[in-house]
Design a protein around this nucleic acid. Structure first.
Length: 258
DNA sequence: AAATCCGGCAACCGCGGAGAT
DNA sequence: AATCTCCGCGGTTGCCGGATT
């Protein structure tokens, strides 16, 4: 049907985002919330395509993002979810507060995959590698059903699924964490964080599934540190009082810490 | 110290789904 | 029902920094 490009390629900037662009995007989203991404670049004064803005926001600028390496618990959760959902990174990410699909995907490809292979587990099927080889020898196509679609079927309990698919003690241990897993599999919809993110910033230090959520202040602190610009540099003249107070508090807090 | 290699991660690309018309 | 538009997802690419030679 001849799909149109997502944006006018002419005059659209690509590549790494600058601090200035980040400022503009943050400023715009905080002021207006997330609206039509296609319109964002124009309204925010950015020479980017809407898609790029959305990606930058969701993967990097969102204040509810956690930064840093995945914890052991998170990693195990990713492994377990992957064994059920396959490469549905967004679904997996929805169950890990403060993590993005891109982050999880990258972590999977760079760390977890290797880890599993080292442990003798096939990162695709989550079956022991030697068993896989055997199955391949016999041209058994049983594993066809282990893909993502079959995983949609939540008829089996988490523990059943775990014990059958894993040769890893640590993963099995993790799967026995009933409180965590039950909350994950109570229903098809993920708890808490699947709802689209909006400007309702948590007060801070909350937890979800035993995994601590970063506070708005922590995230902003990270942002401000990394971008190496202060609140006043943001040019957030249009922020409302609450937002400005929050950020000012943060800035003061940073100074006391430092 | 310089060159090369390699791993990690941010960002891009293209496709499919969903809603609107 | 067909078409259009937008959004979100997953795969892939390419850059950057650290490790190694």
């Amino acid at each position: 049907m001849g799909r149109q490009p997502c944006c006018d390629k002419l005059g659209v900037k690509k590549g790494p985002w600058t601090a200035e662009e980040d400022k503009k995007l943050i400023n715009f989203i905080l002021t207006n919330g997330q609206c039509c991404w296609r319109a964002v670049p124009k309204l925010a004064g950015l020479r980017r395509c809407g898609k790029s803005c959305r990606l930058r926001w969701t993967n990097y600028l969102r204040p509810d993002l956690k930064r840093g390496l995945l914890s052991e618990a998170e990693e195990q959760l990713v492994i377990d979810l992957h064994s059920r959902l396959g490469n549905r990174w967004s679904k997996i990410a929805a169950r890990l507060p403060g993590r993005t699909d891109n982050e999880i995907k990258n972590h999977w490809n760079t760390h977890i995959k290797k880890k599993l292979i080292k442990m003798g587990i096939d990162p695709v099927t989550h079956e022991p590698l030697n068993k896989e080889a055997k199955a391949a020898e016999n041209h058994i196509s049983e594993t066809d059903g282990v893909g993502a679609d079959s995983l949609e079927d939540n008829s089996s309990t988490p523990t059943e699924n775990c014990s059958s698919s894993v040769g890893s003690n640590s993963l099995a241990k993790f799967c026995n964490d009933e409180s965590l897993l039950s909350s994950l599999w109570m229903n098809d919809e993920p708890p808490l964080i699947d709802a689209s993110w909006d400007i309702n910033i948590p007060a801070g230090g909350e937890t979800c599934n035993g995994i601590s959520l970063p506070s708005w202040e922590e995230n902003c602190a990270w942002l401000l540190e990394c971008q190496d610009f202060g609140i006043n540099d943001f040019g957030l003249d249009c922020l409302n009082d609450i937002e400005l107070n929050t950020m000012n508090t943060l800035e003061m807090g940073d100074k006391t810490v430092a």
